[in-house]
C-alpha cells in the first residue's frame, strides 16, 4: 500500500512538475526573448507576469475548437495527444534527484529506473514524431502537410546522430540506465571526456525538438505554423506543451549524460538538476533569438554530411579510448 502510494506520489510530482515547468517555459521563453530584444515581456499578470501561463491556459481552454471540414476528425483530435504522451512518458526514466526517505522507505527520485533507459527515451521520441506527422496529415491542408513531411525527414536524419552522440557516454559508463550514468559521473561530468559528443548532442537536440535554427516543421514565416497551422484552442495548446515537454526531457537527458545529472555541491540534488535543465532551456531560447532558420537542403546536408560522420567518429574514438586506455 505504502509502495503504491509512493509510486503514485512520484508520478504526480514528476509529471505534474513537468507539465507545470512546461507551462512556465512559455513564460520564460517570452521573458528571455524580450530581454534579448530590449523589451520587457509579459509583466502584467501577477508579479513579473508569473501568472501569465495560467491566464493563457484558461484563455486557450475557452477558445473555440476549429476542425477543418476536410480533416480526418479522429486522427486530427488524437494527434496532439500522440505527441504529448510520449513526451511526458520519456521523462519517466530521468533521475531528477538522489534517493530520499519517505515513510521509512528509501525512494529513488526517478519514476522508473529501467536498465535500457536511453533506448526507452529514443523509442518515445520516435513515437512523438508520429503525432506531428499524423496531425499534419489529418489536417488535410497544404501548410501542415509540408510541415509534417519536413518534420518526418528531419527527425529521421537527426535521430541517428542523436543516438550516436550519446553512445560515447554509454560506452564510458558501461550502462544504458540513466541512474547508472549519473553514478558514473561522481568524479567528473562526462562533458570533460566527451566534448564532441556534447556538441553533437546539443545540435541534434535542437533538431529533434524542432527548435530554431532547425524549426522547419513550424517555420512561421513560410508555413504559417507548419504542422499545427489548422489547430486551435486546447489542441494547439497540447502541441505546444508537448514541444516544451520534449525540450525539457531532452534537456534533462543532456544534463544527465553530460553535466552529471543531479550531482553538484552545496545545493540539494533536485535544485542542481533544475538548474542544469534550465540552463539548457535558456540556451535553447537564447539560440532561437539569435539564429536565422536553416534552408531545408542545408538542414539535410548538415545532418547527413557533417553530424553523422562526426558522431560516428566520436563513437570510434571513444570505443578505442575505452578499449586501450581503460
Amino acid at each position: 500500500m505504502v509502495t503504491l502510494l509512493i509510486i503514485l506520489g512520484k508520478v504526480l510530482v514528476g509529471f505534474g512538475g513537468l507539465l507545470l515547468l512546461a507551462a512556465y517555459m512559455t513564460w520564460m521563453e517570452r521573458r528571455v526573448f524580450a530581454l534579448i530584444q530590449v523589451r520587457v515581456g509579459p509583466n502584467r499578470v501577477g508579479p513579473s507576469g508569473l501568472l501569465q501561463p495560467i491566464a493563457d491556459g484558461i484563455k486557450l481552454m475557452f477558445k473555440e475548437t476549429i476542425i477543418p471540414a476536410q480533416a480526418d476528425k479522429v486522427i486530427y483530435v488524437l494527434a496532439p495527444a500522440v505527441t504529448l504522451i510520449p513526451a511526458l512518458a520519456a521523462f519517466a526514466v530521468v533521475p531528477f534527484g538522489d534517493s530520499v526517505t519517505v515513510l521509512g522507505q528509501k525512494v529513488d527520485l526517478v519514476l522508473a529506473d529501467i536498465n535500457v533507459g536511453i533506448l526507452y527515451i529514443f523509442a518515445m521520441a520516435g513515437i512523438g514524431v508520429y503525432g506531428i506527422v499524423l496531425g499534419s496529415w489529418a489536417s488535410n491542408s497544404k501548410y501542415p502537410l509540408i510541415g509534417g513531411l519536413r518534420s518526418a525527414a528531419q527527425l529521421i536524419s537527426y535521430e541517428l546522430s542523436l543516438g550516436m552522440s550519446l553512445l560515447g557516454v554509454v560506452m564510458i559508463a558501461g550502462t544504458l540506465s540513466l541512474k547508472g550514468i549519473v553514478e558514473g559521473q561522481a568524479g567528473m561530468p562526462y562533458i570533460v571526456l566527451q566534448p564532441l559528443g556534447f556538441l553533437l548532442f546539443v545540435v541534434c537536440m535542437l533538431a529533434e525538438t524542432n527548435r530554431a535554427p532547425f524549426d522547419l516543421p513550424e517555420a512561421e514565416s513560410e508555413l504559417t505554423g507548419g504542422f499545427h497551422t489548422e489547430y486551435s484552442s486546447m489542441h494547439f495548446a497540447v502541441y505546444s506543451i508537448a514541444e516544451y515537454c520534449s525540450m525539457i526531457t531532452l534537456s534533462a537527458v543532456g544534463a544527465t549524460f553530460f553535466l552529471g545529472g543531479w550531482r553538484g555541491p552545496l545545493l540539494p540534488p533536485v535544485v542542481w538538476f533544475l538548474i542544469k535543465v534550465l540552463a539548457f532551456m535558456f540556451f535553447f531560447m537564447w539560440l532561437r533569438a539569435s539564429t536565422p532558420r536553416l534552408r531545408y537542403d542545408q538542414l539535410m546536408g548538415f545532418g547527413w554530411k557533417v553530424l553523422l560522420p562526426l558522431s560516428i567518429l566520436n563513437v570510434i574514438l571513444t570505443a578505442g579510448a575505452v578499449v586501450f586506455i581503460g
Binding site: 530581454l35 534579448i36 530584444q37 530590449v38 537564447w286 539560440l287 533569438a289 539569435s290 539564429t291
Partner: peptide, 9 residues
C-alpha cells in the same frame, strides 16, 4: 551572434 544578443539583453 550569441554574443551580440547577449550584449543586447
Amino acid at each position: 551572434g550569441l554574443w551580440l544578443t547577449l550584449k543586447h539583453s
